[in-house]
Amino acid sequence: MQIIKKKEEFRESLLSWYHREKRDLPWRNTSDPYYIWVSEVMLQQTRVDTVIPYYERFIDSFPTMEALADADENDLLKMWEGLGYYSRARNLQAGVREVVESYGGEVPDTRKEISTLKGVGPYTAGAVLSIAYGVPEHAVDGNVMRVMSRLLLIEDDIAIPRTKKIFEDVVMDLIDKKDPSSFNQGLMELGATICTPKPKCLLCPVRDFCTAFHEGRQEELPVKTKKTTMKVIPVASFAIQNEQGEWLLRQRPAKGLLAGLWEFPMIELLDGKTLPEKVKEQFDIELEEFVELLSFKHIFSHITWEMKSFKARMTEAETIPKGFKFFTNQEVEALPKPVPVIKIWEEIKRGE
């Protein structure tokens, strides 16, 4: 690992570029620690362009920590609908409740205290502390590790959790004590817009300080071992109506994948049985008027669903499967649904 010798010049180059070129993002127009916390949670594993409308709707609906703390979980999940990784929303609400109940509604301004809150890891803690409170704390995410690995020619594998400590230490060595907010956001912005997986080195404001650039190795870094092959599961989802035109859905369990969201009946297609056989076996109902809807893939962090979806009808003679309820079109609209169900529902509405 190399070192940056002219640290002050490096900081000046990064900060002047950031202040000149930074994107106009809604959470950059506030120093409210709650709003910054919300934005950082939403930005985990989600693109900025996707987050912006969600962030704005969320803040409109829950403008204070007290409003979020008191919110019904269904309302929270509906507001998060389509953003994915729903445990983020639950953890955010749990953490906010801790602040309201234990800290008088004031987000803690030390790493030790803020890190005790539900869902607040080292990165979120550092981001909130530096951006909202101006505390010189590291906020190391994937973008920052990519930038620093190239600047300092760090060849340690970033897929190994303990490697993060190396990057946290080098950021603390370089951080601008007078303006840690702009320094951390500058590193994040650089990684998001210039020092991308395919770097735009000719546009980089700190290229002169970059060891990997000078050695022509920028595209080799960061070092990251590949994940094991993702498990693929073929599944079928059934949008089932009764004779009144209502739709059959159930709420997923309170814990686990897509916890608390509402879904159509769904089965795994792993044993070669026909669809009617599988439906009968799993839900003890027989369906008629099968119509194929959409086929698509839905990728989670650890598995992929190969989805097939169908529209079908259930007669009055059939007993409603345990755990399911029928809902009107309007009621289905109001339910918090995962992305696969939203896609199927949108396809149904287009066909009506």
Score class of each variant (00 low, 15 high):
173 D>Q: 03
173 D>N: 06
174 L>A: 10
174 L>C: 07
174 L>Q: 10
176 D>F: 00
177 K>T: 08
177 K>C: 01
177 K>H: 07
177 K>V: 05
178 K>M: 05
180 P>Q: 02
180 P>K: 02
181 S>D: 12
182 S>H: 06
183 F>M: 01
183 F>E: 07
183 F>V: 00
184 N>H: 07
184 N>E: 08
184 N>W: 04
185 Q>I: 00
186 G>D: 14
187 L>N: 08
188 M>F: 12
188 M>Q: 08
188 M>C: 08
188 M>K: 09
189 E>L: 00
190 L>E: 08
190 L>D: 09
191 G>I: 01
191 G>P: 07
191 G>T: 01
191 G>V: 01
192 A>H: 06
193 T>I: 00
193 T>A: 05
194 I>K: 04
194 I>Q: 08
194 I>W: 09
195 C>I: 01
196 T>N: 14
196 T>P: 10
197 P>A: 07
197 P>Y: 06
200 K>I: 03
200 K>Q: 11
201 C>Y: 02
202 L>P: 06
202 L>G: 10
203 L>N: 11
206 V>L: 11
206 V>C: 08
207 R>V: 07
208 D>G: 10
209 F>E: 09
209 F>A: 03
210 C>S: 06
210 C>Q: 02
210 C>H: 02
211 T>R: 13
213 F>P: 05
213 F>W: 03
213 F>R: 00
213 F>L: 00
214 H>A: 12
214 H>C: 03
214 H>S: 15
215 E>W: 04
215 E>D: 15
215 E>L: 14
216 G>R: 06
217 R>A: 12
217 R>H: 07
218 Q>N: 12
219 E>M: 03
221 L>C: 10
222 P>S: 09
222 P>Q: 11
223 V>L: 04
223 V>T: 12
223 V>R: 09
224 K>Q: 15
224 K>E: 15
224 K>P: 13
224 K>W: 12
224 K>C: 15
224 K>T: 12
224 K>L: 09
224 K>R: 15
225 T>R: 13
225 T>Q: 12
226 K>I: 06
227 K>M: 14
228 T>K: 14
230 M>W: 06
232 V>I: 13
233 I>G: 13
233 I>D: 15
233 I>M: 09
233 I>R: 11
234 P>L: 07
234 P>V: 07
236 A>R: 04
237 S>T: 14
237 S>D: 10
237 S>P: 06
238 F>I: 02
238 F>G: 12
240 I>N: 12
241 Q>N: 08
241 Q>S: 15
242 N>R: 01
242 N>C: 04
242 N>H: 03
244 Q>A: 15
245 G>E: 06
247 W>K: 05
